[in-house]
């Protein structure tokens, strides 16, 4: 059974040899092939090489074009800096005042340098492993994109200080998100992940007004084109699990602060949950024995369709033995040994 078959069957609740491993590897993958991070973010060939290397080394079941939050923001016109071995940085928000919104127009992904680089990544993944391993594209949720353009604190205060203006900004962000998702599916993405982590900080009511409708529109477009929508919100989302389920996502990532078993009971068969042990305490700082225990705990409590991964990105200094222990535990679980 290859990763593609494993994923499709697991999604439907059919028997698989082992649950899929969807660990999110970005900085780790780049370090794994000894490339500087600035190249990973700016050259799709490096991103693909890194992801294909960790795919093979750790028996993952996905290749992912996710890299950093600033693909769309850069093509909107934000100035992004790429330190040699650091994360991309946007020091000056593009939309500093209300009047700046007038010059913001939705971006055509193919004509944007950074968005097009992701399209190239998806296409290259497709050439290498299409039909054997699920290829995942990625977009920013509308609120996440608004935060990229405004700054997180500012956009959270916009909710109160200028809600109607914020919705105008979200409208431009969602249109770009839909265009970007469609272009990645055209390029060969099987899954579209949507990152909207800023909304882990808002109330359920604020989520319903400022996040949910926009997630629904992006995911609706994703499903229309036959791809699988995946929602990723870092942080403690325990209070918004019901709202997240209404987004239309077929896969919902849960960070380690969320009780995996409770979420599985709440969702039942749909949507599928993905997660969720602590990437720092377990993967980075733990032992192989701890990783095995926590991996099995997730698989035992997550229900028959759950997908395994650390709650969020694999830290770049994670010991290889810990990742191998995760893979081994998943295989043992699949074969009934654990």
């Amino acid at each position: 059974m290859n990763s593609w078959e494993r994923f499709r069957k697991r999604l439907k609740g059919e028997t698989v040899d082992r649950p899929p491993n969807f660990d999110i590897m970005m900085t780790f993958a780049c370090h794994y092939i000894n490339e500087p991070l600035c190249r990973y973010y700016q050259d799709y060939r490096v991103l693909c090489e890194a992801n294909l290397a960790v795919l093979e080394a750790f028996d993952l079941d996905i290749v992912q074009a996710i890299s950093d939050p600033y693909r769309e923001a850069a093509d909107f016109g934000a100035k992004i800096e790429f330190p040699e071995n650091g994360l991309p940085i946007c020091k000056e928000p593009l939309i500093r005042q209300e009047s700046d919104l007038k010059r913001l127009v939705p971006v055509n992904p193919a004509s944007g340098k950074r968005m097009n680089d992701r399209l190239e990544a998806v296409s290259l993944f497709r050439q290498h492993v299409g039909g054997q391993v699920p290829v995942m594209g990625w977009v920013e949720g509308a609120m996440a994109e608004a935060a990229d353009l405004r700054g997180v604190s500012t956009v959270l205060m916009d909710i109160f200080e200028r809600p109607e203006w914020l919705k105008e900004l979200l409208e431009i962000c969602v249109e770009t998100g839909i265009n970007f998702a469609r272009a990645q599916i055209d390029a060969g993405a099987d899954i579209i992940g949507l990152g909207d982590s800023v909304v882990s900080q808002v109330s359920p009511q604020q989520y319903e007004e400022f996040a949910l409708p926009y997630q629904q529109r992006i995911f609706s477009a994703v499903k229309e084109m036959g791809a699988v929508p995946r929602l990723h919100i870092c942080g403690n989302t325990s209070l918004i699990l019901n709202q997240m389920a209404q987004s239309g996502a077929e896969i919902i990532d849960l960070d380690w602060m969320v009780d995996f078993g409770s979420a599985a009971r709440l969702y039942g068969d749909y949507p599928v949950i993905c997660g969720n042990f602590d990437p720092v305490k377990v993967l980075l700082q733990g032992t192989p024995a701890l990783v095995k225990m926590e991996t099995l705990k997730c698989l035992q409590t997550g229900g028959p369709r759950c997908i395994n991964m650390a709650g969020c990105e694999v830290p770049f200094e994670t010991p290889y033995d810990n990742l191998l222990a995760q893979t081994k535990a998943i295989k043992e679980f699949g074969s009934g040994l654990s």
């Binding site: 604190s153 959270l156 205060m157 909710i159 109160f160 900080q201 808002v202 109330s203 604020q206 209070l239």
Partner: peptide, 14 residues
């Protein structure tokens, strides 16, 4: 008590 969230805290900070 989950009766206020980060946006409310930020307004208080302001």
């Amino acid at each position: 008590r989950n009766e206020a969230f980060v946006p409310e805290l930020l307004m208080s900070a302001k």
